[in-house]
Amino acid sequence: MSLSLDATTDGRAEKALPFFSKLAHAGVGDWLFRKLTAFFAFLILFLACLTAFTLWKASVPSIHKMGWSFLTSSDWDPVQEIFGSVPFVYGTLVSSFLALLIATPFGLGISLFLTELAPMKMREPVAFMVETLAAIPSVVYGLWGIFLLAPFMRVHVDPILIKTGLPIFKGPSTGLSLFTAGVILSIMILPTITAISREVFEAVPNAYRESAKALGATNWETIQLAVMKPSKVGILGAVMLALGRALGETMTVTMVIGNTPQVTTNLLAAGHSMASVIANEFSEAVGDIHVAALAEIGLLLMVITLILNVAAHLLVWLTTSKFQR
């Protein structure tokens, strides 16, 4: 049995005592320290409310002026003060989903390799490599994207894609495109998918794997039946968290997406994203409405990532705590 002081300070009998003798009993220091740390914890809740409220307040002029057409219009004209968010939302969604499409199989493959397959000696270096990918600042990715990845895509990858004749790949390409943005984002969210799905896979009890092996399953069948199947929900959570990362990524996308507000099904054309339009225009916005419209895009971005994050964290918690019981 563990001795817990909480039992004496929170006990029911204590509530009957008057305030000051309660203090004397529990010790003023204990009471103060607990309240002090609780206050700092409360500040986190306050910060969340402050963020939401400030954004909303900053975007009020635009909400009043544009109303719902902000969400449905694809005109963005700061001079005429007409603002519609469609091209930016479109660019953000397309580049992020493209990134997910590429990064999910790779991320799951790597985390399966790390938790199930790799020899012990290889696990640490591979994990270190993925962590290093996560540590590189986004502006450095952007620099690499402009001068290395974009020319590489233009010369080597895009011509092959154009040759396939698919309507989503139409030339000529400049290298600065939705597609390049998706590729570079996939590299950046790879560590997120890998780290979280690894956490989920590691939470699967070994008894599951042993049972599958005992029935004669091969390595891959064990992974399918005993590892992937029970952690389905957690994998979904990992993918959603990575999507949240991709949606909010600013600098890298700004540097390779081409910054042209248009809605096109051609992935090799330039696009724009919610975060990049804020980065490009906020500091030199021409009027109050322009600033408010950019803030409203920020608000929209926050609402989307908020919903994603809440759902994703719940899913990851559900899976990992299921195994712990």
Binding site: L241, L247, G248, L301, T305, L306, L308, N309, H313
Partner: peptide, 9 residues
């Protein structure tokens, strides 16, 4: 959830 809020926001 806060750590998932985009930095530009």
């Amino acid at each position: 959830v806060l750590s998932g809020v985009p930095s530009i926001v």
